[in-house]
């Protein structure tokens, strides 16, 4: 029987999520910032949750001194952070990207994620979805992207599709 509460017209797309993590040691912030700006072509975001986009790369500050660099093409993700400045880790195998497209995106989010819709513009939000930690970014009023742990991706996609 069709679920009467289901959101109509929702499209869920799963794809790989090329992602590199940079963590600065904190003892040479200027050097780290210079290196990052050189690789990224822009300054790294200053606040946790802030997003900076440059040359097809999205940089998100996910925690103090820790950044995620995401791109749709693995080759465009900047790499090469010197070990003297911080640690670089490729996390592209362990995350999946789930794109949600629906005119009822706000309603879908309200059913799934503790996200204040009015505070999601140009911000990344970290919250549990179906008890799994995810990162959410809003592309438009009808399109949002989740970055989810790969092993939970199927469960989360099922959950979203049943919204």
């Amino acid at each position: 029987m069709a679920d009467p509460t289901a959101i109509q017209g929702i499209t869920i797309t799963r794809s790989r999520c090329p992602l590199v993590q940079w963590q600065a040691w904190g003892d040479d912030d200027d050097g780290f910032a210079r290196f990052a700006a050189g690789r990224l072509g822009a300054s790294l975001p200053a606040e946790v949750g802030q997003i900076v986009k440059s040359d097809g790369v999205t940089a998100v500050k996910i925690a103090p001194r820790r950044f995620w660099l995401l791109a749709s093409d693995p080759d465009t993700v900047p790499r090469g952070l010197p070990g003297t400045l911080g640690a670089e880790l490729d996390l592209g195998e362990g995350r999946e990207r789930i794109d949600i497209r629906t005119p009822a995106l706000r309603d879908v989010l309200a059913r799934c994620l503790a996200v204040d819709w009015d505070r999601t513009q140009d911000r990344a939000v970290f919250a549990p979805l179906h008890r799994v930690p995810v990162m959410f970014t809003r592309g438009s009023t009808e399109h949002g992207t989740l970055v989810v742990p790969r092993t939970f991706a199927q469960s989360i996609a099922d959950w979203l599709e049943d919204c």
């Binding site: 993590q21 963590q23 640690a87 996390l91 195998e93 362990g94």
Partner: peptide, 9 residues
């Protein structure tokens, strides 16, 4: 730096 890579491998 410690990072969970359980899902990576």
């Amino acid at each position: 730096s410690v990072t969970s890579v359980t899902d990576e491998w």
